[in-house]
Design a binder for these strands. Structure first.
Ligand SMILES: [Mn+2]
Ligand SMILES: [Mn+2]
Ligand SMILES: [Zn+2]
Ligand SMILES: [Zn+2]
Lengths: 146, 146
DNA sequence: TTCTAAATGAGACTGAATTGCACTTGCAGT
DNA sequence: ACTGCAAGTGCAATTCAGTCTCATTTAGAA
């Protein structure tokens, strides 16, 4: 969305005890600039297309570091590849509707569901840390076409 | 749980347009006999330990066929291996709490969440087919020990 | 500028899952 | 029961996302 400049991105990395390498800055900038849920290969190819020299290993390692610092979220849509999206803090949580036809992803947040999840955990003496909720189906556009 | 005999299992397979091979019967019987959420390799090893000759490829292909017939559910707990559990029809749906320490899986079903999910889909013009909800955290026992 | 721990690049490697192909078998039809 | 053959199986080769090794490079502190 809003294009953060390189200095801002470098500071963000340093605030999270990460060396501000050109590869990491480029990766963060890419994730800041999109609403997509890219996988590692897509990120790798986008960076290369943007004249950034980077290796697959570095993409994976950088993403791992960013996820560990909660700057990025790692998502499993169940198709064998992990997806990544920029995380804008604790209050940024949302879940996903995924169109099985066109792959479109719709984000949502529902406070009642979140509350029920906590209640369920309490009933089971379970201490939750994270959760994922994926609803698969057909989006409005694909429904019309089909 | 209740040990279904081979004839019953064979009939189940045939009712779903699947040839009742010895491998498939053994696989179904194994899944009927457990509450676990086995992965393909565990199923393969269990069948071998039970003197059943079966190959990994057949385990994968049989599971795929059973999932397609909705006799088995395929679960992705996010650790790189798919899990499988017997499905006892449409009304058998449940979601999972997963202990990140010991791996224990607690099953639950919450009608309010299911209703909210449907509402969310309607709001987005989305036609749902399936969903998965995984809540990761620490189970009561691991909490006490930790 | 110099120094060095951390990061990167290239490619080898891993492990789950899939596939090609020759062989076997369930089972429908006789 | 016997036969024919499409469907299923076994094995090995293959795919593919992701991880690891190690030689080289670099960020950033001194
Ligand atoms: Mn998202
Ligand atoms: Mn279950
Ligand atoms: Zn769609
Ligand atoms: Zn536990």
């Amino acid at each position: 969305m809003q294009a953060a400049n390189n200095r801002t991105l470098k500071n963000t990395l340093r605030e999270h005890e990460l060396k501000a390498t050109t590869q990491r800055v480029a990766l963060l900038k890419l994730l800041e600039s999109t609403q997509e849920h890219f996988d590692a290969e897509e990120i790798y190819l986008q960076l290369r297309a943007g004249q950034k020299n980077v290796s697959r290993a570095t993409v994976y390692r950088s993403l791992e570091a960013l996820v560990e610092q909660c700057l990025v979220s790692k998502l499993d849509f169940g198709d064998g590849r992990m997806r990544y999206e920029l995380s804008r803090g604790e209050d940024d949580h949302h879940d996903h509707l995924i169109c099985e036809i066109c792959g479109k992803v719709i984000e949502f947040f529902n406070l009642e569901i979140e509350a029920q999840q906590i209640a369920i955990c309490q009933e089971n003496g379970f201490t939750p840390s994270t959760h994922t909720m994926l609803i698969f189906g057909t989006c409005a556009e694909c429904r019309k076409l089909g």
